[in-house]
Amino acid sequence: MPDCAVPDALNTVGKKHPIDNQIANLRKAHGLTQAALADAVGVTRQTIIAIEQNRYSPSLETAFRIAREFSRTVDEVFDWTET
């Protein structure tokens, strides 16, 4: 039975995620809380937590919003390793 018909941006628990990110480090460097970043980007705090913990891959739009908050490019915030 297929897991789901929707895109698998919700990562499977225990499965290594190909997209890594520097959000937690950048957020701390900028003195931002998860809630403040979530408000600035337009998602919930839980979604920021999920992205930081590599449990969820954000949409391209959210990735750009996050990068913009840190005045970085998407490439500097997110890293993709082909598996």
Binding site: C4, V6, A9, V43, T47, Y56, P58
Partner: peptide
């Protein structure tokens, strides 16, 4: 929070739950 719409991750969660 009560007035906030679902964000992108929450929409996926609801879609998957609806699928099951």
């Amino acid at each position: 929070d009560a007035n906030a719409p679902l964000d992108e991750r929450e929409r996926l969660i609801h879609q998957r739950a609806g699928h099951w």
